[in-house]
């Protein structure tokens, strides 16, 4: 992996590539910073969940799910990639530095995706809750006045259709496959439910984004719909979770959880060993 044994020039390990061009000066500096903050939260959600779910590659309960979860993970990391590129353009940074070069405590992912992959039922329930939240969030962003974002979101939403279809089917399967899978699903939902609304956690400078039409309203205004849709579906499956979603905790803040510390160590390992490593 490191070096170039045949002597040919190779490219650095990278997720960076070109994104749609836009003029960063169309936005004033504070709005640009607020937009970068919004994008980093979404990108980190996708990136972190993508890495958790890629952990199933090779060990999922069945071959089809090895393939499916690997594809889902690849989709999410692809979404993160294009968003990190957009942030790099807004802030004058480098997408690889943003993706792999931050200390663990600087990632801004929501609590819902901070949990380790745990068992299969847990990963399915978490991904279903997240995909539903993500679809609702993308629906709002599709109407963003920031055209490069609205354009990418239009594309991402089509992919999310497959995610939701797949996860809806898996939730039905867990609910109808005997006591063990029902118990595990219920336990997972009881743990996750409190964090279900965290993808919609309010951002400090949201008002600037709303004023610029980048967001049409407060993010946490989307949480009710998510809760209602999730509750309706889970009632149908007779898997109503305990408690209630709470925005409390929202996005990651220090101290870093043991789970995420482990994941961060994994996905930054190559870069930390050799910043110029090549494939």
């Amino acid at each position: 992996m490191i070096g170039s044994p045949d002597g040919r020039p190779r490219t650095r390990q990278t997720i960076a590539r070109d994104v749609p061009e836009f003029d960063v000066h169309d936005l004033d500096q504070p709005t640009r910073a607020a937009l970068a903050e919004l994008l980093v939260t979404i990108a980190d959600d996708e990136f972190v969940l993508g890495f958790w779910d890629s952990e199933w590659t090779g060990i999922a309960p069945m071959l089809e799910e090895d393939v499916a979860f690997s594809s889902l993970a690849q989709d999410e990391i692809g979404h993160a990639r294009v968003l990190y590129e957009m942030i790099a353009r807004l802030t004058g940074g480098d997408a690889d530095d943003i993706a792999f070069g931050r200390p663990a405590e600087a990632y801004r992912h929501c609590r819902l995706v901070d949990h380790p992959r745990t068992d299969w039922a847990f990963s399915v329930c978490r991904r279903w809750l997240y995909d539903l939240a993500d679809s609702i969030r993308l629906g709002a962003l599709a109407r963003s006045s920031f055209r490069p974002l609205a354009d990418v979101v239009a594309k991402i939403r089509r992919e999310e259709t497959y995610h939701l279809m797949h996860m809806d089917a898996w939730m039905r399967r867990l609910a109808s496959s005997g006591l063990d899978s029902r118990v595990r699903a219920k336990e997972a939902l009881d743990t996750l439910w409190v964090d279900a609304s965290t993808p919609f956690a309010r951002l400090p400078d949201e008002a600037l984004l709303i004023a610029a039409g980048i967001l049409e309203g407060p993010l946490d205004g989307l949480a009710d719909r998510h809760r209602d849709m999730a509750t309706g579906f889970l009632r149908e499956l007779d898997l109503q979770p305990l408690g209630a979603p709470s925005g409390h905790g929202g996005r990651q803040r220090p101290p870093v959880s043991t789970g995420f510390a482990w994941l961060w160590n994994e996905f930054t390992m190559v870069r930390r060993q050799d910043e110029t490593a090549t494939w």
Partner: peptide, 9 residues
């Protein structure tokens, strides 16, 4: 449909 996810995305 056997799997919505195949060998490539």
């Amino acid at each position: 449909l056997a799997n919505a996810f195949g060998p490539t995305l």
